[in-house]
Amino acid sequence: MLIKKPIDQDAIRGLSQISLPFLFAMVLLAAPMVLLLAMSFWTQDFLTLDKSFTLNNIREAWFEPIYQVLMMRSLKISLIVTFVTILLAYPAAYYMSFVAPNRRKPLLVFLITIPFWTSYLMRIFLWKVILGYNGVINSTLIELGFIEKPLEFILYNQFAVVLTLSHAWLPFAVLPIFVAMERMNRSYLEAAQDLGDSAFQSFIRITLPLTMPGVVAATLIVFVPTIGDYVTPKLVGGPDGLMIANMIEMQFKKANNAPLGAALALSAMFLVATVALIFVWLNRRYLKSEGAA
């Protein structure tokens, strides 16, 4: 039975305003996702699509060693990148919020945001220029006489992917942490100091828990897109640094196997969602144990 609540004018206005953007999201996101799911149950033979139901693609995506390797490598790289990024972004945000004088803050934020808006593709590509065989590092080291032959181990491997991705996502991690720090009530810190906490103690017991929402936001902002990154592994990863997105693209385009591509894409999405939920859950537990939630 439907319980009919009296719907007032406001609710009607709200619903009518949200209907268009909601419909747009349904048509362009939900419906395509459903089709992607359907696609993963089908089979493609060159260009013809066989629409009889099969779980083969999902099975292949989950149990074929090559896809397992790519999936785990993507997860590993993405986790390392997230960790490195947060580790570097946190002290930077701390400096911006707690050390820098107030009048300098807008300038610092501006400085951090500029790389945001320079071409992503160019930023990634520049790392190839820096790390390459004839690249900036190698040619400089040779010129200075430190080495005779170019170092080959710095490009086309997972290290290069981690370095490049971390650099590309650093600004995105600083801002949410900085915002969380700005929102923090500073009088807690004064109270802690008055009550005899050392600077380090009050950081661990007050600043860290209170800025955790910013850290979690930064974690998700970095983790989610990097696991599906296509450009970086392709440009600087070499064969050992390829990630799952490169395989998805290959299945959709060159390999003419969209169903397997769909199964891989959905599996990657499932993986991202699971890990993201674990992050959020861990954070809740941590905050509860700190008594801040």
């Binding site: 609540k5 719907i7 406001d10 609710a11 009607i12 206005r13 709200g14 619903l15 305003q17 949200i18 953007p21 909601f22 747009f24 999201a25 349904m26 996101l29 939900a30 395509p32 996702m33 089709l35 992607l36 998700l220 989610v224 897109p225 696991i227 599906g228 990154d229 296509y230 997105a245 998805i248 693209e249 959709f252 591509g261 769909a262 894409a265 990657a268 999405m269 991202v272 993201a276």
Partner: peptide
Amino acid sequence: YSFPGKTPMMAAIMVPMFLPEIIIGVS
């Protein structure tokens, strides 16, 4: 405004922010 179904509808609209772009591309 507040209206029934507000939270899930807003969440559905915000989802693309939390998806790798490649997923949106292939779908």
